[in-house]
Design a binder for these strands. Structure first.
Length: 870
RNA sequence: GGAGGCUUAGCUCAGCGGGAGAGCAUUCCCUUCACAGGGGAGGGGUCAAGGGUUCGAAUCCCCUAGCCUCCACCA
C-alpha cells in the first residue's frame, strides 16, 4: 500500500518540525556564488515585545518574495535582525524595575541599568526567534544582526564622525521637543499632534510709562516667568507709540521691553504678543534676532525651576492653575476662553511635549536630502516605490526637511562619540576613545534609534568594512515596509546610503498599509482589539494566515482582519489537501516523477495543461509586480474550479478506462499539474505544500530545492475548443435539469453541435465524461422535438419530452435570446464603428468579430427553437 | 493651509479603457465513489452624484459630496 496523506488536513501536524529541518539543512543560507544574488533585509523588529499581526503581514510579503526568487534560481539572502529601540525598550525596562523592585532606572548606575536592558533584549530576541520560526520566514540566521552589536557600534561611530567632520553634524542650543516624562529630547517625527480642549488666557501687561494695559493672550501661562519682551508689529498704529517702552509682566512683575518685529500678525488676537524664547520655537527665532536673554523656567521633568520664584518645584500644570488664580486676584486676568487646539504629545509616553531650549546634537539635513532628491530623478539610481504614489510623499517630505535632533537623554543606545576636556572644555569627536581618558568626559547622551536603523541595509552586510557580503548583496533588491515609517526609516536609509555608499540602499520599496480590526479600527492596546498572530496560527495554521495576509490587499492599502477570510484560506488549503489525496490514491505504486509522459494525453489533459500554462504565466507576471491579491485569485480559481471541479472529475472517466495508455497519461497529467500547483503555492503556504510534495513522487529532498515551474511546451498551441464545449455542455445540461425540476440523476439524451450547427460526435472518453458528470447520453439522431440551448462554442439539443416543460423552456430561451441580442447589439455597435476599426488593436478587432459571429449563430439556433415551440 | 487614499452585490474587498467579479452571507437541490469545513444550480449591483475626453468609461480628466490618513500649524 502506497503512503497517502492523512485523512484529514491538520495544520498542527503538517507544520510540526518542518522549519527546524529546513534551517538545519541550510536551505535558507545564502552564498551560492554560481547564482545571481537577491537581497531582502528584514525590517528589524524592536526588542520591546512580541511580534504583532502587522509584523506577520510584513514578513509574509518578504518571505513570499524570498521563496519565489529562490525558486527562480537566485542566491537569495533574507537577512534577519532586531532593533534595540532606545526609548521604548528603556521605558519597558524601567517599568519592569518599578513593578518588580519598586525602583526606577535613576536608582541604578548606567552600567547596572544596561545590564538589565541586555537581559530584556536577550529574552525578547528569543521570543522573536520563535515567532519567526512559526511564521516560516526563510531567514539566513548565519547573518543575523542587532542594531547595537559590535559591527554596528563601529558603523555608527564611523557615520557620526564622518558627518561631524564634514560639517553635517553639529551641536547647538535649540528649541527641541522635550518629553518631560522620559526626560529626553525627541525629533519632530516623534511628536504627534492632537486636538485637545484647552484655554486661552488673556492678561494685562501694564505699560510702565503710560499706565495703559496691553492685553496679551497665551495658552501656556506657566512660561510667562521668562517672557523676555512684548512684540508688536512695527507698523501697527495702535502700538507704535509703545515701542521702546516697558511692560510689567503680571506673573512676576518683571519689567520687560516692548519691541517691534514683523513676525507679529496684526490681525491675530490683540496684535501684541509676549515672547518667551526658551519655550517656543518662533519666539526663539525672534529672540535670536533681537539678542534677547533666553532663560528657561522649567526643569527637565516638567516642574518649575528657580526662575518661577515661589512656584519652583511645582508641576507645570499645577503651576498654571495657581498662577492664573494669583493674577486674577491681582486684577490682571482679562478673560479665559475655552478652546480646542492642537497639542503635541510624545509618541512614546503620550505626555504633553514641552518646546524646550536645550543643547543637542543635530544632523544638517538639507544637503543630504538634496542628494537623494537629485538621484530620484535618475532612472538608473532612483528608489522605485510600489505603488508609485508614495514617491510623492517621500519627495515632498525631503523637500521640506528640517534638521534632525539626534541626541537622546537615555542610556540604552549608541553613546555619542564626543568627549569634553575636563580642564579646557575642548571637544574631541573621534571613532577612537581618547588616549588619555582620565582627562576627558564622554557626552552622556545616546543617539536616536533611527540613527542606527538608517544604516541597516548596508551595515548588516559588514559595512564600513569592504566585506564579501557587502560587495555581493548590496544594494538590496527589495525593501518591504509600511507607509507609516517612510519618513522615520526609508528616507533616512536613503540619505545615509547615498552619502556613505554612493548608491541607493535598495532598488524597490514595496509599501504595505496597516492592518485593522474587523470594524476598520486601528489595533491598539487600549482598545484591546489586537490580534495575536500566534493565536491565529494555532487556530488556522500559518499557511492559512499567510495566504490571508498576502492575498487580501493591494499594495499600499490598509487591510482588515476578517476571521472568515482566514477560514476561507483554510478551506482552500483543505481543498488542495483533498485533491492531493485523490491524486495520490490514483497513482500507480512505484510511479516516479520521471515517469511523467505526455505523448498520449487526451483532449481534457491538453485543456488542463493549457490552463495551467496560462496560470503559470499570470502568476509569474503578478509576482514580479508584487500583486499578490491577483496571484491569490488566479491560483484559487485555477485550483478549485479548473483543477478540482472540472479536471479531476473529468479525469475520473479516464482513470476508469480499460486502456492502460489512457490511464497512464491521466496519471502523468495529474502528477504534473498538482506538482506545478504546489510549486506555485509554495511561497504562500510553504508547510502544506512541502507535506504534499514529499508524499508525491518527487525529485528533490524538499520543495525548498525545487525551481519555479516552466511553461509546458507539449501543449503549446493546442486547440482546447472541444473540451471547453464539453464543459459548457455539462453545465448547461445541469442547469436545464434544475430549471425543468428534474433530479440531477435523471437521465436524458443530448447532441452537441459546433458554432456552425455541425453535429460534433464525442469520443469514447468524452461520452463517458458526459455520462458521469451530467447523466446524459450522447445521441446522434434524437427523435421528436428538440430543445436547443447555446453553450460555449456551439449549441446542444435535447429531446423536448425529456425536459417535459415547454413553458419553462420557452421562458428560458426568451431570456437567452434577449441576452444574445444585447451582446450582439453591443458587438455590432463596436464593429460598425469606423473609429473602432481604425483605432483599435488588430487582435481586439479579431476577437470582437469572432464574438459577433458566435453570438449571431447561437441566436439563430435559439430563435429557430423558439419558432418550433410557438 | 498642503498632500494622498477610499466610495463596486447584504458584509469585506479585487478589477482600473472594450462581455460587472471573488470570499462570506442568502435561495433551491444532492447520503456510498478525494473533500458535507463538500458537490450542483440560482438570486442579488443604474460600479457615490454631475460634467467632460473617447468609436467605446466602473476604469482617464474635471467638479461635488461623504468617510479616512499623513504633513504643516500664529501668540
Amino acid at each position: 500500500m502506497k503512503e497517502n496523506l492523512a485523512q484529514k488536513y491538520d495544520h498542527h501536524s503538517v507544520e510540526e518540525g518542518k522549519y527546524a529541518e529546513w534551517v538545519e539543512k541550510g536551505y535558507f543560507t545564502a552564498g551560492d556564488l554560481t547564482k545571481k544574488p537577491y537581497t531582502i533585509v528584514i525590517p528589524p523588529p524592536n526588542v520591546t515585545g512580541m511580534l504583532h499581526i502587522g509584523h506577520a503581514w510584513d514578513n509574509t510579503l518578504q518571505d513570499i518574495i524570498s521563496r519565489y526568487k529562490r525558486m527562480q534560481g537566485y542566491d537569495m539572502l533574507y537577512l534577519p535582525g532586531t532593533d534595540h529601540a532606545g526609548i521604548s525598550t528603556e521605558a519597558k525596562v524601567d517599568a519592569r524595575l518599578r513593578a518588580e523592585q519598586g525602583i526606577s532606572r535613576r536608582d541604578l548606575t548606567r552600567e547596572q541599568f544596561l545590564e538589565k536592558a541586555y537581559e530584556w533584549k536577550e529574552e525578547y530576541a528569543g521570543i522573536i526567534h520563535k515567532q519567526w520560526e512559526k511564521l516560516g520566514n526563510s531567514l539566513d540566521y548565519s547573518r543575523e544582526r542587532f542594531t547595537m552589536d559590535e559591527g554596528f557600534v563601529k558603523a555608527v561611530r564611523h557615520v557620526f564622525v564622518s558627518l561631524y567632520n564634514d560639517g553635517l553634524i553639529y551641536r547647538g542650543k535649540r528649541i527641541i521637543n522635550w518629553d518631560p516624562e522620559a526626560r529626553t529630547a525627541l525629533s519632530n517625527l516623534e511628536v504627534y499632534y492632537q486636538d485637545d480642549p484647552g484655554q486661552m488666557f488673556y492678561f494685562n501687561y501694564r505699560v510702565k510709562e503710560t499706565g495703559e494695559d496691553l492685553i496679551i493672550a497665551t495658552t501656556r501661562p506657566e512660561t510667562m516667568f521668562t517672557d523676555e519682551c512684548i512684540i508688536v508689529h512695527p507698523e501697527d498704529e495702535r502700538y507704535r507709540h509703545l515701542v521702546g517702552r516697558t511692560a510689567v509682566n503680571p506673573a512676576n512683575h518683571e519689567e520687560i521691553p516692548i519691541l517691534a518685529d514683523e513676525y507679529v500678525d496684526r490681525e491675530f488676537g490683540t496684535g501684541a504678543m509676549k515672547c518667551t524664547p526658551a519655550h517656543d520655537p518662533n519666539d526663539f527665532i525672534i529672540g535670536e534676532r533681537h539678542g534677547l536673554p533666553m532663560r528657561s523656567c522649567m526643569n527637565d521633568n516638567g516642574t518649575m525651576n528657580e526662575n518661577a520664584g515661589v512656584y519652583a518645584g511645582m508641576d507645570r500644570f499645577a503651576c498654571r492653575d495657581r498662577l492664573v488664580e494669583t493674577i486674577r486676584a491681582e486684577g490682571n486676568l482679562v478673560r479665559i476662553e475655552n478652546i480646542v487646539h492642537s497639542v503635541g504629545h510624545s509618541e512614546r509616553t503620550h505626555c504633553v511635549v514641552e518646546p524646550y531650549l536645550s543643547e543637542q546634537w543635530f544632523v544638517r539635513m538639507k544637503p543630504l536630502a538634496e542628494d537623494v532628491l537629485a538621484h530620484q530623478e535618475d532612472p538608473e539610481q532612483r528608489i522605485v516605490f510600489w505603488p508609485e504614489r508614495f514617491n510623492k510623499t517621500f519627495v515632498q517630505w525631503l523637500e521640506n526637511i528640517e534638521d534632525w535632533c539626534i541626541s537622546r537623554q537615555l542610556w540604552w543606545g549608541h553613546r555619542i562619540p564626543a568627549w569634553y576636556h575636563k580642564e579646557t572644555g575642548e571637544i574631541y569627536v573621534s571613532e577612537q576613545d581618547p588616549a588619555d581618558p582620565e582627562n576627558w568626559i564622554q557626552d552622556e547622551d545616546v543617539l536616536d534609534t533611527w540613527f542606527s536603523s538608517a544604516l541597516w541595509p548596508f551595515a548588516t552586510l559588514g559595512w564600513p568594512e569592504d566585506t564579501e557580503d557587502y560587495k555581493r548583496y548590496y544594494p538590496n533588491d527589495t525593501m518591504v515596509t509600511g507607509y507609516d515609517i517612510i519618513f522615520f526609516w526609508v528616507a533616512r536609509m536613503a540619505f545615509d546610503a547615498r552619502y556613505f555608499t554612493h548608491n541607493r540602499p535598495f532598488h524597490h520599496v514595496l509599501i504595505h498599509g496597516l492592518i485593522r480590526d474587523a470594524q476598520g479600527r486601528k489595533m491598539s492596546k487600549s482598545l484591546g482589539n489586537g490580534i495575536d498572530p500566534m493565536q491565529v496560527i494555532d487556530e488556522y495554521g500559518v499557511d492559512a494566515l499567510r495566504f490571508f495576509l498576502s492575498t487580501n490587499s493591494t499594495p499600499g492599502q490598509d487591510m482588515r482582519y476578517i476571521p472568515e477570510k482566514v477560514e476561507a484560506a483554510w478551506n482552500f488549503i483543505n481543498k488542495l489537501w483533498n485533491a492531493s489525496r485523490f491524486v495520490l490514491m490514483n497513482l500507480d505504486d512505484g510511479m516516479k516523477y520521471s515517469d511523467i509522459d505526455l505523448t498520449d494525453i487526451s483532449e481534457v489533459d491538453k485543456w488542463i495543461l493549457t490552463r495551467l500554462n496560462q496560470t503559470i504565466e499570470h502568476v509569474t507576471d503578478n509576482n514580479e509586480k508584487y500583486e499578490f491579491a491577483q496571484v491569490g485569485n488566479e491560483l484559487y480559481s485555477f485550483v478549485w474550479d479548473d483543477f478540482c471541479s472540472w479536471y479531476v472529475e473529468l479525469a475520473k472517466a479516464n482513470l476508469g478506462s480499460a486502456d492502460e495508455k489512457v490511464r497512464k497519461a491521466t496519471q502523468s497529467v495529474l502528477l504534473l499539474a498538482l506538482t506545478d500547483i504546489i510549486k506555485l503555492l509554495f511561497p504562500f503556504m510553504p508547510f502544506v505544500t512541502e507535506e504534499i510534495y514529499l508524499k508525491l513522487p518527487h525529485e528533490k529532498d524538499s520543495l525548498n530545492l525545487e525551481s519555479w515551474p516552466d511553461i509546458i511546451e507539449a501543449v503549446h498551441g493546442c486547440d482546447i475548443a472541444d473540451t471547453e464545449r464539453l464543459i459548457s455542455a455539462i453545465s448547461k445540461i445541469r442547469e436545464l435539469k434544475a430549471a425543468a425540476g428534474l433530479k440531477p440523476s435523471a437521465r436524458i439524451h443530448v447532441r452537441l453541435r459546433d458554432i456552425d450547427g455541425n453535429i460534433k460526435p464525442l469520443s469514447t472518453d468524452q461520452a463517458a465524461m458526459l455520462e458521469r458528470m451530467a447523466r446524459a447520453e450522447w445521441q446522434a439522431d434524437p427523435e421528436g422535438d428538440l430543445t436547443v440551448a447555446s453553450i460555449n462554442g456551439g449549441t446542444i439539443q435535447i429531446p423536448s419530452h425529456e425536459l417535459q416543460n415547454k413553458e419553462e423552456e420557452t421562458a428560458k430561451l426568451m431570456k437567452e435570446a434577449e441576452r444574445l441580442r444585447k451582446e450582439l447589439q453591443r458587438s455590432e455597435g463596436i464593429l460598425n464603428n469606423k473609429g473602432f476599426l481604425a483605432k483599435a488593436p488588430a487582435d481586439k478587432i479579431a476577437l470582437e468579430q469572432k464574438k459577433q459571429e458566435d453570438y449571431r449563430k447561437q441566436l439563430e439556433a435559439v430563435e429557430a427553437r423558439l419558432a418550433e415551440l410557438a
